[in-house]
Design a protein around this nucleic acid. Structure first.
Length: 482
RNA sequence: GUCCCCAUCGUCUAGCGGUUAGGACGUCGGCCUUUCAAGCCGAUAACACGGGUUCGAUCCCCGUUGGGGACACCA
């Protein structure tokens, strides 16, 4: 057991998004590899935006991916008293001071400073005033030692940080008495004994200020690693409106957790030429040293490929469990698993990238009535094939076995009876008649899996359709002539 | 605007001074073939630009350009 302690600290202000999921994954993989302790902490100090529903969504998302934690979930909101006490200590020992500047004053001075070519940092007006608790409405600011550089060696970005003079004395506590995020995270991370902080690169520039808090508290500084952000396919920041970013959404669309995990892992991290990683392999090989420093675009095509890969090698029972809800949605009823359904899924897994798509392709074998695509009917259900279909019907009606081999024999007989018709000429019309579409598994398998009664009924309907069509066109044999 | 960061095929990336710049997804072509897939084979395609350093730069340094992030009494 190592002493490595990490944490994932999402704020429950919506769903778990893929950037957060990846951060969690990296933390988890690193911790599991080292045999450390992984802590989950919900940063819910923003009461306006935090909800219990999204907290549940976050936990659900992690569980779905198979990311487990050893401690927590803790809630930051439960620790506010501790945060307040820390601010008092800081105040008492002179590492923090009260500030009575109002927002308006602050903004005005800031603008003036920028106009004069300054950086717009807090000017330190209240820094040496020695304001006491009775000074009226006030915030509490950290007294940053301007002589000491705020630098650290980032495990991903390398030497990082800036001069203390580059940042102003930040606020630790609001005038309403509530602590700010920066103070809360640092205190929590210290109290929970976090040794390695792996988080999104959006915190890279926040780190100097947090470093200053660690110093003021006299606490050892943990090791930091900032992971580059995931960007949209447009190249820009992920947009909740335009881009698919919610883990729940991917899940609903029928992506397998294995595929999701694999995809997320390879987004910004690599291990030589290897593309396929199981959870165990990620743990075995994960290394922050091989996390890139540039942002990664979410490549949905790659996800689709991975998903099909996992679909293809999924054990039958697991596959059924995963598609079952989608099958039910298409069938309009619970679909019971049997040999025929397993066979169907085996045929479909090579033809689908997602579970919802797979269920849709299974429709012909699940429902009694299907719609024939107009275009397909027009092109394939023509008088030329009427005789052949009728011959096939005769042969199939005699087929009691009803498996791919026996059906194939029936097709051969029908083609012979129809004057040595080529199989292709018959297969496509039959496919359209039985599935309603021009694409499906092999024709024998398609019939097998559609079921004997359903297949025969649809073929009879097709014959009726062709007859009717011949009449409509005046019975002049237009179809035959073409 | 200020500060910080990033930069290899369309995308994810390998590379850590000397390589025909590799892999994967995608795309395109071929094979297979009763459709669609899958599979197999092949092709396309990159070191942003300009200066240095060096015998030699994708790799090290500087600048430019481009992109991203942070600058709240949000987290």
């Amino acid at each position: 057991m190592s002493t490595l302690r990490t944490r994932f600290a999402p704020s429950p202000t919506g769903f778990l998004h893929i950037g957060g999921a990846r951060t969690a994954l990296f933390n988890w993989a690193m911790t599991r590899k080292a045999g450390g302790t992984f802590i989950l902490r919900i940063e819910d100090t923003d009461h306006e935006r935090s909800t219990r529903e999204s907290e549940a969504a976050v936990l659900e998302g992690l569980e779905w991916l198979g990311i487990d934690w050893d401690e927590g979930p803790y809630r930051q909101s439960e620790r506010v008293e501790r945060h307040r006490a820390v601010v008092e200590t800081l105040l008492a020992d002179g590492n923090a001071y009260r500030c009575v500047c109002t927002r308006e004053e602050l903004e005005e001075r800031r603008n003036r400073d920028i106009a004069a070519g300054g950086k717009g940092n807090y000017d330190g007006r209240c820094r040496e005033l020695g304001l006491g608790p009775e000074c009226g409405p006030h915030t509490v600011r950290l007294r940053i030692d301007r002589e000491r550089a705020l630098r650290w060696d980032d495990l991903v970005f390398g030497p990082s940080g800036q001069e203390a003079s580059e940042i102003g004395d930040g606020i630790l506590r609001r005038s309403d008495g509530t602590p700010l995020y920066h103070l809360a995270v640092v205190v929590d991370d210290i109290d929970m004994g976090i040794t390695h902080i792996v988080r999104g690169a959006d915190h890279h520039s926040n780190t100097p200020f947090q470093l200053a808090i660690y110093r003021a508290l006299g606490a050892p500084v943990p090791t930091f690693a900032h992971v580059p952000l995931i960007v949209a396919e447009s190249g820009r920041k992920l947009s909740k409106r335009r881009d698919p970013v919610s883990l729940q959404q991917f899940r609903a669309e029928g992506y397998l957790p294995e595929a999701m995990l694999n995809w997320l892992a390879r987004l910004g991290w690599s291990h030589g030429d290897q593309e396929i990683f199981s959870a165990d392999e990620i743990i075995e090989h994960f290394d922050l040293a091989h996390v890139g420093r540039s942002g990664a675009q979410a490549d949905l095509a790659k996800l689709a490929w991975l998903n099909q890969h996992y679909l293809k090698q999924c054990p039958a029972d697991a596959l059924f469990a995963a598609v079952s809800p989608y099958l039910a949605a298409v069938a309009g009823r619970e679909v019971v698993r049997d040999a025929r359904v397993d066979r169907l899924l085996d045929l479909l897994r090579e033809r689908s990238t997602r579970l919802d798509e797979m269920a849709e392709k299974a429709r012909f074998a699940l429902v009694d009535r299907i719609e024939i695509e107009a275009e397909a009917a027009k092109k394939h259900l023509r008088p030329v094939v009427q005789d052949a279909i009728e011959a096939l019907l005769v042969a199939l009606e005699r087929d009691a076995e009803w498996n791919a081999a026996s059906i194939e024999a029936a097709f051969e007989a029908a083609c012979r009876a129809a004057g040595d018709l080529k199989l292709g000429k018959l297969a496509q019309p039959v496919r359209v008649a039985v599935t309603g579409t021009t694409a499906s598994p092999g024709i024998y398998e398609t019939l097998e899996v559609a079921g004997r009664e359903r297949a025969l009924a649809r073929l009879r309907e097709a014959v009726a359709f062709i007859r009717e069509r011949a009449t409509e066109t005046g019975g002049s044999g237009t179809g035959d002539a073409s």
